[in-house]
Write a protein that binds this DNA or RNA. Structure first.
Ligand SMILES: [Mn+2]
Ligand SMILES: [Mn+2]
Length: 318
DNA sequence: GGGACGA
DNA sequence: TCGTCCCAACGCAGA
DNA sequence: TCTGCG
């Protein structure tokens, strides 16, 4: 008798349009599973939940203990979307939250991710994209990493690659290891580990120093101007995102873009002309992860020494 | 997406 | 038990 | 003070 080769069972039943599942002891309900979220690609909510179920083991370490911004697309990538930060009175008891009082003195509750259930609950609200803070609740004012965010205007992705390589040159010169990923949209993100040793202000100052040096090298096609109209169509070297309460799409996040692209970590030797955001999607991300493993592991490791590094930058670049 | 409301 | 309505961010750079 | 920005 031959054993039938059974395909690995997916997280959700392909035949059901609604399903409740207990995850980390938390009962989650998934509705409208056949609703198409990416119409060109015929990708459904069910596909999205199955992706986050499978990617969770790689992704959760980058979500754990982090306050979250929810960017919700309850009707797919072309439907209206909105941000949600306050989850007061809307969150199941099994989810963790953090009290937050804003400038106006209003008391809010931010979701704090803890495990796979947190990830799947966000997804169930229509969060195609997953947006974690750069810091954890235990050290809310101290980011684990500094991010240099490359935001092209109309440039070809090869131009983004060139700018990323320029950033690597500067960081190499001062002995800093950095970790690149595609944003999954039009740009790239470069992470520098900080080990929660510095403030957001210090992190932002460091990003500004790096970006200034890079801009000096390639002023023809990059800009540090915050005002879009003052950029003159050049690629924005965004260092201002290093502040509390600000987020970007996290590593392994899907994006609400045609192709169901994923924000994917890269090795620096992949940062070469010809690379595109379309290289990494809901279809091939899990397979790639099985091959490459988690290329972002170093991001949560021991951080750099900002004082020494800044000094070195000053001595080398005057 | 989901909760509150009234028909 | 429906259909409809309504709600769901934020801080700050820089002008 | 207000708007643009991501
Ligand atoms: Mn960006
Ligand atoms: Mn940006």
């Amino acid at each position: 008798m031959t054993k039938a080769i059974k395909p690995e069972a997916s997280f959700l039943d392909p035949a059901k349009d609604s399903q409740s599942v207990k995850v980390n002891g938390c009962l989650l309900t998934f509705n409208h599973l056949s609703k198409v979220y990416w119409p060109e690609d015929r990708i459904t909510k069910r596909d999205m939940f199955n992706y986050y179920d499978q990617v969770a083991e790689y992704m959760v370490p980058y979500l754990k203990d982090r306050p979250m911004s929810l960017n919700r697309f309850p009707n797919g990538i072309y439907g209206p979307s909105f941000y949600q930060k306050n989850v007061k009175d809307k969150v199941p008891g099994c989810m963790a939250t953090m009290p937050h009082t804003n400038d106006k003195g209003e008391e809010k509750e931010y979701l704090v991710a803890t495990n796979k259930a947190s990830l799947l609950w966000m997804a169930s609200l229509g969060c195609i994209e997953i947006n974690p803070w750069f810091s954890r609740v235990q050290s809310a004012g101290n980011p684990d990493f500094c991010v240099i965010d490359l935001d092209p205007d109309k440039q070809h992705f090869d131009q983004v690659v060139s700018a990323a390589q320029e950033i690597k040159k500067v960081l190499d010169a001062i002995g800093v290891t950095a970790y690149p990923k595609t944003s999954g949209s039009t740009g790239m993100h470069i992470y520098i580990p900080l080990g929660a040793k510095y403030t957001y202000d210090q992190s932002q100052m460091f990003a500004k120093i790096i970006v200034s040096l890079v801009h000096k090298q390639i002023p023809e096609y990059t800009s540090m101007e915050r005002m879009v109209r003052k950029r003159g169509g050049k690629m924005y070297l965004d260092f201002l995102q290093n502040r509390p309460d600000a987020t970007i799409a996290g590593v392994y996040s899907l994006r609400p873009k045609p192709g169901a692209t994923v924000s994917m970590p890269l090795s620096w030797d992949e940062v070469k002309p010809g690379l595109t955001m379309r290289d990494f999607t809901i279809h091939n991300a899990i397979q790639r992860l099985k091959e490459t493993g988690d290329l972002f592991r170093g991001v949560l490791g021991k951080g750099i020494d900002l004082e020494k590094t800044t000094e070195k930058a000053q001595s080398i670049f005057q």
